[in-house]
Design a protein around this nucleic acid. Structure first.
Lengths: 242, 242
DNA sequence: AATTTAATGTGTAGAAAGTACATATTTATT
DNA sequence: AATAAATATGTACTTTCTACACATTAAATT
């Protein structure tokens, strides 16, 4: 802001039904989960005529009385019953033609959740998990949004302890490695992966073993408390603010 | 998107003057420049009563007929006369109380320009360059926005050849090192810095020497053509789109 | 009970990158 | 001619990255 504060103030106070307000703002959530060694995204069937038979991300318009971050939490809560999950803004998408019904600028968040642990309210909705690698077209510009999120996730994954939001509380190093492999799309050497992860000092050996595998069970680990349930992007901002 | 496509479509088509459209969208540009071994940001004096004597970033409302990226280029062009510069989205800021006159969600871009080379239209405006390290309070949430941008810049700076947008076309390694030092806020060892930069293979030795320094002149370099004038974030998206 | 199968768990040598550090050289200034 | 202030450069040490192989454990099979 602001090209001309007075102009803007005037706009806001007096011409609120004119051009500058003919833009709607929405939030779209890229909700990622992990099961069966496969990264999945939660989608809903689009009911716009223009996008018949295409799926779209979960989203909603932002209302004037809620923060955009609150809006994204609201969407997540309404659709999945989850709160207190990892959620972070990616960026805004605002091409003119992105929504067939009008000008809608959308702000994208991505969320990482443990599919198995949190029983979603899936069945009565038309929500479905789709393999991220399996997705061709999506409604709107949602494929672009998804790809952008995946790039962001890949960038973050070795720096920040965020992928643990996709796993159950207790997990083996094999599970963790498989998760990294499906996010990064490459195979990793087991010994080198262990060394690298252990060096980060994110994990706590809880002295338990797997008990549900048809082979030699591995040790179980948890993410250390100090790294839990943080919204890393938001934290950064909060520190700045003070 | 979209919680409920039908609801949303209805909203857009029929209730365009109701709640969901009482949100304005703006773009704010963090325009960074570099001179006298000091990173600077272009600010304008706020003329909102609430922010008397405070400065703010350059911004404007987005109109419904332009992309948000176009809007940010427009602002930059109007204010500085520059186009064809580095410009990349950071993120959206949308707290309820961030604008005293109403609900305004802003999308932030940052831009890196060479102060000396591009003669700005500074004098007839109330635009001024301010040392980034010198900034206390700003109008709106613009301090938070600036800090977020600076963090983004620091993250990017060793990975991507973007800082060259802040320098003249030909520069010495000393100038480059000083720039890195002022962005990162730390001192760097000259020999190690050279090694690291040369390893990246971004620079071309143009076989010229400085001629305006009161001491032994250093070699001049240019950024290799293949790295020039790219908008890295946007490129990523464009590739995805195809 | 013995054997087989399929996974876990661990170490080392070589390569690459990062870090700390000192001296000779070149140019402008005095 | 001497001085001052910067450029240019190399090496030893440490850390991280990478490639790679074998013994161990528990469940499943015979």
């Amino acid at each position: 802001m602001e090209k001309n504060q007075q102009l803007k103030t005037a706009a806001i106070e007096k011409i609120s039904h004119l051009d500058y307000f003919n833009i709607a703002v929405s939030v779209d959530c890229v909700i990622l989960g992990y099961s069966d060694k496969d990264l999945k995204v939660l989608l809903i069937k689009s009911d716009l005529e223009e996008f018949e038979d295409l799926y779209s991300l979960l989203g909603d318009l932002v209302n004037p009385y809620e923060d955009i971050e609150s809006a994204s939490y609201r969407i997540l809560k309404e659709r999945t019953g989850l709160d207190d999950v990892f959620l972070e803004q990616v960026q805004a998408f605002g091409s003119i033609g992105r929504h067939p019904s009008g000008r809608v600028i959308t702000i994208t968040y991505y969320s990482l959740i443990d599919i198995k642990h949190h029983k979603l309210m899936l069945d009565n909705n038309e929500l479905h998990w789709h393999s991220v690698n399996d997705i061709g077209k999506l409604a709107f510009d949602h494929k672009l949004i998804l790809d952008t999120c995946m790039n962001r996730l890949r960038q973050q994954v070795m720096e920040n302890p965020i992928v643990f939001n996709l796993l159950p509380e207790k997990f083996s190093l094999r599970q963790l490695q498989e998760l990294y492999e499906s996010i990064l799309g490459i195979e990793l050497d087991r010994r080198n992966f262990r060394k690298k992860i252990m060096l980060k000092d994110w994990l706590k050996d809880i002295e338990e073993m797997e008990d549900d595998v048809p082979h030699r069970p591995g040790k179980l680990y948890m993410l250390k408390k100090q790294f839990k349930k943080a919204n890393y992007g938001a934290i950064e901002n909060r520190i700045m603010l003070s």
